[in-house]
Write a protein that binds this DNA or RNA. Structure first.
Length: 550
RNA sequence: CGGGACGUAGCUCAGCCUGGUAGAGCGCUGCCUUUGGGAGGCAGAAGCCGCGAGUUCGAAUCUCGCCGUCCCGACCA
């Protein structure tokens, strides 16, 4: 079809909104794809909605291809369902004020509710999905479309007889997701996701590296490792240890409470020190997390290692448990459990003496204290790959998809049972799989733009061709637009009464893959000028050949 | 929820310190000129200065409260 710019709403802006930070935020607003209504609340303009629908359709096709069936479930949900699964207390839930209803932030409850109609193993497996608005009261929306309070998600739910079936459903989704993101033209990495305190079940995140985002993606230069920073393992450099001591030796370090100050005072490598971080578990017991002095503790890893919820201990709790102030704490003589990072297995480190103003030199795990070892540090720049020793790269990334093995958590809670072949009633084994459609749009822009504007991947561009009609060539431009339309292209015909420069600038900003210019220069030979937005390549061709460009 | 910043025309901002009743650029409307990279001229329209109290003869400006938005942190099913 041909779409006339003169009759469309194309609100391009010269300036980016002052509060925009992320590139995708700036460009999507400037190019007229989205407008903000409130914090984390966005309207898609006709232009933006076309791109959104393109992404949606790709997701739909790939879901259908693995046998998933499209539904539509309501946004408003009885709160009762959420009480049954124990999720009614989630802080991000929006509640309806005068009714016992809430806005779904995902649809496990609803689809499990429907799965109660599945009664026999003969009806399994099933895979259901829908595109539906999710409401999440994010504490801090940010980055345009990256972190919002309302968004359309494709969420699907698989229902299987057993773990093997779930695994097959999970792998099918994993493959479908790779195809989806590839078709959308965005680079993504499937990484092991944080399993959290709930633990156990497998969970994979799809991260799209970009200039903005909530996640940090760690990848190896040799391509054999990719992980979310929160769960990534990495090898730090080896410390330069001082001379070995036969036993820990106390040394006065008055007023020295930071690792930097300690390392300077003792003239040693900060990596040859240890840092003690006391945590209090829910039952009130204090445990000691121990990492190397130059490292940071990854709380999520610590909690996973503890298998329990915990919080940093208060100063009072610390004094009671250690008899010393924070800054002089260490594992030697501590009566509780010590969880030490793997980097502390070998070597002698300086540690707090549990006596305010004193440290111990030559502290050695196993000899001077007992500890449970685990990976509880945050990897950082300069670390090496655990698989091959290659250099690691750290990039911020957008989480565009997330797939979970749920098991029977929801089917148990809501009573979604089936009768198996052996005549026994069993809970349905479930998985859930989400894609944030608008995040695909944001990631595509983050990964495909230049200083002039967006460079849409072909599959997500709102139109195929931006046809710039210059003064004096209006008729020829119309003819060219019609011909391209007959050839199957969606053509944005810029027939506005503007100067050439403004039209070109808008074309660059909106970023359709091909720009066709018809003007006086092209009148004589009946050809048109074609520029590929991605490569910048210019060509003069017959209209019929436009489709072969780029 | 803690820390910080900002709310003045459609957009980007100045004015606020030192109170005297509102400005610029871009955009918008009309006319002229121009016409392959946001050109120029002339004439215009457009603001509950976030909201509410207070101080004052007088508040965009000072004080207090509230609301909104953004950034850092906490949180992230």
């Amino acid at each position: 079809m041909v779409f006339r710019a003169s009759q469309r709403f194309l609100p391009t802006l010269r300036d980016a909104p002052a509060d925009a930070d992320a590139v995708s935020h700036k460009l999507l607003v400037r190019a007229g794809f989205i407008r903000q209504v409130g914090a984390g609340l966005w309207t898609f303009t006709p232009l933006g909605w076309r791109s959104h629908r393109k992404a949606e359709q790709i997701v739909r096709e790939e879901m259908d291809a693995i046998g998933a069936q499209e539904w539509l479930a309501p946004v408003i949900t009885p709160a009762e369902l959420w009480r049954e699964t124990g999720r009614a207390g989630i802080a991000a839930l929006f509640h309806v004020r005068d009714r016992d209803l809430l806005l779904a932030l995902t649809h496990e409850e609803t689809f499990t509710f429907h799965a109660r109609e599945l009664q026999s193993y003969r009806q399994l497996p099933q895979c259901w999905y829908h595109f539906q608005t999710k409401g999440r009261d994010e504490p801090r929306p940010s980055g345009g479309l990256i972190r919002v309070r309302e968004f359309i998600m494709k969420d699907s739910y698989s229902f299987d007889r057993d773990e093997e079936g779930l695994d097959a459903s999970f792998r099918a989704h994993e493959q479908a997701y790779h195809r989806i993101f590839e078709r959308c033209g965005i680079e993504t990495y499937a990484v092991q996701a944080e399993s959290g305190v709930m633990g156990g079940s497998e969970s994979v995140d799809f991260l799209a590296p970009s200039g903005a985002g909530q996640n940090v993606l760690v990848t190896c230069e040799n391509g054999d490792f990719a992980a979310d920073l929160e769960v990534a393992r990495a090898l730090p450099r080896a410390p330069e240890f001082p001379e070995r001591l036969d036993q820990p030796t106390e040394i006065a370090t008055p007023g020295t409470t930071t690792i930097e100050a300690l390392a300077e005072l003792l003239a040693i490598d900060p990596a040859a020190t240890s840092k003690a971080m006391p945590y209090t578990k829910e039952d009130g017991t204090v445990v000691l997390a121990l990492v190397r002095g130059d490292d940071r503790l990854e709380e999520a890893k610590l909690l996973a290692a503890l298998g329990a919820s915990a919080r940093p201990a208060t100063e009072d709790e610390i004094r009671t448990a250690f008899g010393a102030d924070p800054g002089s704490l260490g594992p030697v003589g501590f009566g509780g459990e010590v969880i030490a990072d793997d980097t502390l297995r070998e070597g002698q480190f300086v540690a707090g003496a549990n006596r305010t103003g004193w440290h111990l030199r030559g502290v050695e795990a196993g000899r001077d204290f007992e500890a449970r070892f685990a990976d509880i540090r945050v990897p950082r720049e300069g670390d090496r790959c655990v698989k091959c020793g290659g250099a690691l790269t750290f990039r911020t990334a957008i989480e565009v998809g997330h797939i979970f093995k749920l098991g029977t958590r929801y089917s148990d809670a809501l009573g979604a049972m089936f009768l198996d072949e052996d005549g026994r009633e069993k809970p349905i084994v479930m998985g859930s799989y989400g894609i944030g459609v608008a995040r695909i749009i944001a990631a595509a822009v983050e990964q495909n733009h230049d200083e002039l504007g967006i460079r849409w991947p072909r599959a997500l561009a709102p139109y195929d061709v931006h046809l710039v009609a210059l003064a004096g060539a209006e008729t020829q431009a119309e003819e060219a637009a019609d011909e391209l339309s007959r050839a199957g292209f969606d053509v944005l015909l810029d027939d506005r009464d503007l100067r050439a420069g403004e039209k070109f600038a808008d074309a660059d900003l909106i970023g359709l893959p091909l720009r066709v210019t018809v003007g006086k220069k092209t009148l004589e030979d009946g050809m048109v000028d074609v520029r590929n937005r991605t490569t910048g390549e210019d060509r003069r061709v017959n209209v019929a050949e436009v489709g072969t460009q780029g």
